[in-house]
């Protein structure tokens, strides 16, 4: 049972070589349909050959699969549209030194190939990537001068923009991937070191859901990370203009519920997915703030313009 079991595959096209190739997300993985042997292409790239843009993009995805920074820019809800164009990225890449720009995915000569799993091979590269932090991400290593720091930030920003340029469906799936990397029971200590960021991530996404559910001002919503057993808690406090919604939810709510488009379904706030699946999932949902959660079956009805799967009960 995985967080992404309630999500269907998604396709998008990216510039690669002289044309555009399809990249598919399916069951939590990126598939490069035009590159059946991405591993070999990575080796060729390491030896000085051109690396296909698709392959480099898949590397970028893997590199940021646990990067909380992704969540600071990504969408908070279905109505929150994040738009990034590939020409914008090309323009930013053009501001980088040429040798570094080549290491970021984008339009480069690339032979057409057939589908393959995402590249997970280890290869020696001309710029070494170093592990950083508990999430185990890697990023290009520099010696740390001011100019190099600026370039590093630019590269990280370009990588982030490339991932967001994949479109809304991929934006939510990437967010789910990042959250899932942090939500496991084995990451509790790591979460404790990143509480402020995680609090922002959770509140920033739960508050719009609560607004959609109850019509309340999202600024009056407080949510903290629930670290104990169970789905958490939720209650209204105060009256009139002082009324607030206080809740605690596990971080996994974001990946299992929110990223799958299940936050609010037919007037219910989904607090947990007990039986993930697509196009049907078993959920635990609240019909009202002070009600007990009920077990319901949700059925997928399509896809919203914002990139989320839509559901009904």
């Amino acid at each position: 049972m995985s967080w992404f079991d309630s999500l269907p595959p998604a396709d998008t096209t990216v510039p690669c070589g002289t044309g555009e190739h399809t990249v598919r997300w399916e069951a939590g993985r990126l598939t490069l349909t035009a590159h059946p042997d991405a591993e070999a292409e990575l080796v060729l790239g390491a030896l000085g050959g051109d690396k296909p843009g698709c392959v480099t993009l898949a590397e970028t995805w893997a590199r940021h699969a646990g990067d909380l920074t992704v969540l600071t820019s990504g969408p908070r809800c279905d109505a929150d549209r994040v738009r990034v164009d590939w020409p914008q990225i090309e323009e930013l890449r053009g501001q980088l030194p040429r040798s570094l720009a080549r290491l970021i995915s984008g339009t480069r000569p690339s032979p057409p190939t057939t589908p393959t799993p995402p590249p997970t091979v280890r290869v020696t590269r001309r710029i070494h990537y170093r592990h950083a932090g508990a999430a185990g991400q890697v990023t290009p290593g520099f010696s740390g001068s001011r100019k190099e720091d600026v370039i590093r930030r630019q590269m990280q920003q370009i990588e982030l923009l490339e991932l967001l340029a994949l479109g809304p469906e991929f934006q939510f799936r990437l967010a789910g991937t990042v959250i899932a990397a942090w939500a496991g029971p084995d990451r509790r200590d790591d979460r404790a070191t990143r509480r402020p960021e995680l609090s922002g991530v959770l509140t920033g996404r739960f508050a719009p859901a609560a607004q959609e559910w109850l019509g309340i001002d999202p600024d009056t919503v407080t949510v903290i990370t629930h670290e104990e057993a169970g789905w958490g808690s939720l209650r209204m406090v105060g009256t009139g203009r002082g009324q607030r919604l206080r809740s605690s939810l596990p971080l996994s709510w974001l990946s299992e519920v929110w990223a799958c488009g299940l936050a609010v379904v037919a007037g219910h706030l989904v607090v947990a997915v007990e039986d993930p699946g697509y196009p049907e999932a078993g959920v635990l949902a609240l019909p009202a703030p002070d009600a007990e959660p009920v077990r319901l079956r949700a059925r997928a009805t399509g896809r919203s313009a914002g990139g989320l799967v839509t559901w009904t009960l």
């Binding site: 990067d67 920074t69 950083a132 932090g133 990023t139 520099f142 590093r152 990143r194």
Partner: peptide, 11 residues
């Protein structure tokens, strides 16, 4: 400008 360079995931 005074911000130390960060890695993804770095605290």
């Amino acid at each position: 400008l005074r911000t130390a360079p960060l890695q993804p995931g770095q605290r």
